[in-house]
Structure formats: C-alpha cells, structure tokens
C-alpha cells in the first residue's frame, strides 16, 4: 500500500483551471436596451389608446356566432388539408410515373392550380352552377354515340344539381382542396425523392410489390421531409379560410368578427380579436405538428437524446470488457 501510493500520485498535477477575462459584447447590450424600450412603448400604446376598447373586444370575441365561425374555420382547414394531402400523394405518385401521359397530366394539374389565386378559384367554383345546371356522370359521349347508332337515349349513372352542390361549405372545401392538392403534390414528390433509392431496392429484393414498398418503406421515411412544409401549408390554409368570403361562406371566423365590427363601428377591437383568434388557432396546429414530427422521426436520432446515447455507448464499452 505504502509502496504503491507514490505511483498513483506520481502523475503530473492537473493544469490550473483557466480563469480568463471574457470578451465583452457592448453591442448586444445596446441592442437589448433598444428592444426593451420599443417593447415598453408598444405595451404603453396598447394600454393607453382608447380605440382598442379591450372590454368591448373581450365581450364580443366569444359570442356563439364567433365560436361557430371558429369551428367552421377549423373544420374547413382540417378537411381541406386531409383532401389536399390525399390528392397530393396521388398526384406525386403520378408525377413520378414512367408513363409520360400520366406524369404529364399530373404536371398540367399542378401547373394549372398553382397558377390560380385561391380567391379566383373559389369564386369560379361557386358559380359552376351557371355552366351546367345539372352535372351527370356516365358513359363518355353517350348521346353522340347513341345518335350515331340511331337511338334517342343516354347512359347516365348518377348526377347532381350544380346549384345545390357548388354553394357554401362544399364549394369552399372543393376549391381549397383542389388548390392545396397541387402544392402538396410537390411537397410529397420532394419527400419521396429524398428517400435513398437503396430502400426501395432492398424492399424489392425482399419480394415486396411496388405498392407495398411505397406504403410501408418509402412514404413513412418521406414523411420526415413532408411534415414541416405541410405544417406551413396547414397554417396558410387556416388563414386562407378567410377567402371563403368569395363563395360566400358566411359562417367562417373572420367574417363573423368583421360583421360585429361593421355593425358596431368598433373596427379596431374586432380586427385585434381576429388577430388573437388566428394566433390561438395557429398555436394549436403547431402543437399537433410537434407530435407528428416526433412520431415520424423514429429511427432518425430524435428518439434518443444525446445523453441517452452517451449512456448507452458507455454501457456498451463496459459490457465488452
């Protein structure tokens, strides 16, 4: 014991801890001060300007009509996004098809619907009832063919009244979903193309069909790339529901708040109420996005924190000894 003691302490003394004078950053302090002053001025304005009418705003931003409007806005956002994403997946797969007609059709769709402003598209769809009063589906060119054969007949399977379908919520949903499909197609395509081709090859080598490879192997990995821009799209969609005025859909949030403002001449309080409502709803969607991102980052490092990984590596080294 006594003989060994000098051996273990014979190592050179550890170097002295560095206690250097840190670099000063006066610029940061000035910037912080400027921001603090601006923030104080902003709060002061909110508190002192009588036009804001905070009491009036609070009394009127939760009326039953406004709450119904918020619900319509949320339901429309979710429904249009679900349809848009599904449409986008179909278009993206078409776009990547080796068949030039299929891929060209998808390209044309994307070109057309990305070019049209949503408000123009919504207005157009809302007036499709003027193009044909009745829309029917069946055998293509049935009347012309029957004419050729010398019959007076047609072959229709089902149909609907244009003036019943292309109004209100349905027209709005149709317009927003059709438009969204074009944007989502490009996002999904980028996601699919971001997946290493070796993944599909490995799946094929295991005997998986093309469809199964896409569903089980490629799309789940593409989701990692698809979700963040889709979050953006969803937030944009939430705000674009205010364009439903072009249809018109009057049960929507912004319309309801503005209606109160116009009726009472309290424009600013109700505009602020609108801002606050959209802030709240967007925040709600961001929470959803956070959990989706977490779900689809499994196996890509985010499931294991740095500390967990360090602990596991340490345990590995220990077990190998």
């Amino acid at each position: 014991m006594a003989a060994e003691a000098p051996d273990t302490t014979a190592r050179p003394a550890p170097p002295e801890q560095i206690r250097a004078v840190p670099v000063r950053h006066p610029g940061r302090w000035v910037a912080a001060a400027v921001i603090a002053v601006l923030a104080a001025m902003f709060v002061h304005m909110l508190a002192t300007n009588p036009v804001f009418q905070w009491d009036f705003m609070l009394d009127n931003m939760f009326t039953p009509a406004v709450l119904r409007g918020a619900r319509t806005t949320l339901v429309m956002t979710v429904a249009a996004m679900v349809l848009g994403v599904l449409l986008g997946i179909v278009l993206a797969v078409m776009r990547l098809s080796p068949n030039p007609v299929v891929s060209g059709a998808a390209w044309t769709y994307i070109w057309f619907f990305r070019a049209i402003p949503r408000i123009v598209l919504l207005f157009f769809i809302a007036n499709l009832g003027a193009l044909y009063a009745r829309y029917e589906f069946g055998f293509p060119f049935d009347r012309q063919l029957m004419d050729l054969l010398g019959f007076q007949a047609d072959w229709r399977l089902f149909g609907f009244d244009g003036n019943e379908i292309f109004v209100g919520f349905t027209a709005g949903l149709l317009g927003l979903a059709l438009s969204e499909g074009a944007y989502m197609a490009e996002i999904v395509r980028a996601g699919i193309q971001s997946v290493d081709p070796g993944q599909a090859e490995a799946a094929h080598a295991l005997g998986m069909s093309r469809g199964r490879t896409m569903r089980r192997i490629v799309l789940p990995q593409a989701m990692r790339v698809i979700i963040p821009p889709t979050g953006n799209e969803t937030i944009a969609m939430l705000k674009d529901t205010s364009l439903l005025i072009a249809v018109p859909v009057t049960t929507e949030l912004n319309f309801q708040l503005r209606a109160i403002g116009s009726r009472t001449f309290q424009i600013i309080p109700m505009a602020v109420a609108s801002i606050l409502w959209y802030l709240a709803l967007t925040s709600l969607l961001m929470i959803g996005q956070y959990f989706l991102e977490k779900r689809f980052s499994r196996g890509f490092g985010a499931t294991e924190t740095r500390a967990q990984r360090a602990a596991r590596r340490a345990a590995d080294v220990g077990s190998q000894k």
Binding site: D196, G198, E201, A205, I217, F296, R298, G299
Partner: peptide, 15 residues
Amino acid sequence: RDIGMVFQRFNLFPH
C-alpha cells in the same frame, strides 16, 4: 422471395 440479397450499404429500413 426465394432470393435473399445483402447490400454493401446495408439498406436497413431506418424507421
């Protein structure tokens, strides 16, 4: 299905 293949870059499904 009857032919197994092992790749240089493993190509395991990361998810």
